[in-house]
Amino acid sequence: MSVLQRVAKPKTRRGKRVLLKKEPQVIEGPKRAIFFKGRKSSDKLRSLLKDFYDFKKPDGVNLSRKNDITIFENVKPVEDFCRKHDAALFMMGSHSKKRPDNLVVGRMFNDTLLDMVELYVESYQGLKEFATSKITLGIKPCLLFNGALWEQSPDLQQLKSMFIDFFHREYVENVRLQGIEHTISFNATPDGKILVRSYKVLLKKSGMRTPRVELEEIGPRVDFSLRRTKLADEDLMKEACKKPKELKVTKKKNISTDKLGTTHGRIHLGKQDVMKLQTRKMKGLKKTSAERKAEKTKLKKVFAVNNEINQVVSPF
């Protein structure tokens, strides 16, 4: 009975709503992220976490306390954090003698760890160090991935997917053209570094409809290099990438639209039975009563034979 007692029944309407919100949805909103520190952290990491938190802001939670977590040994506490804050992404900064300036980026699926990557922050210049005007809060950035390496190693492929997941916010149908004002570029160089730059987009006149793009660096300017990684379990990843049935577009057969926007339908008819075709009725073509009688008896015979065959075939 002790198992059963743990099933909580919401006592209030509000509590019920909260529980319903935590249940799986067909269309999910933006993924929330939590930012927290490990046992010890450096100045560099603290402001780096703050900067990324600013980029993620309405969907981010910055946890200020230190946490005694060694994530590659034990993920449990991080999973608990994510469950508590209903977050699917996390960033953890930690600083130790063995691994100085350590940043762990990871994501969750169904409140369990999906994958994570450990990065070494080699150099860092924060948002504050660039004396420029900043971007609007909660804007959807353009993401650029430069370098052929992104496709080549599985670790980097995963990191790429993770960065997209982290910064793309969510899919929106409509985007205001003047609202595109932020670009984040991720560069994987052949010497094994990952250079992250963030720019403000300035749209200039070009004499044409499409504007000329100018960029202005707003920071942070970070150079990463890879440390440990934990790749996603294949089955788990497959399940996580499943698309709900409701969102799948099924192709409608025999319907097409032409260039003018009119819909055309195609109907398939069976083959026409020419023998039953009604032609002109004439007295001369009518059957005589003798003919009709003969046809009837013939039909009866056929039925009788059929019945017999059926009886023979069925064993019981």
Partner: peptide
Amino acid sequence: KTVLPRMKPVP
């Protein structure tokens, strides 16, 4: 076009 993992399983 990019396939990203979901937060929770398909309901």
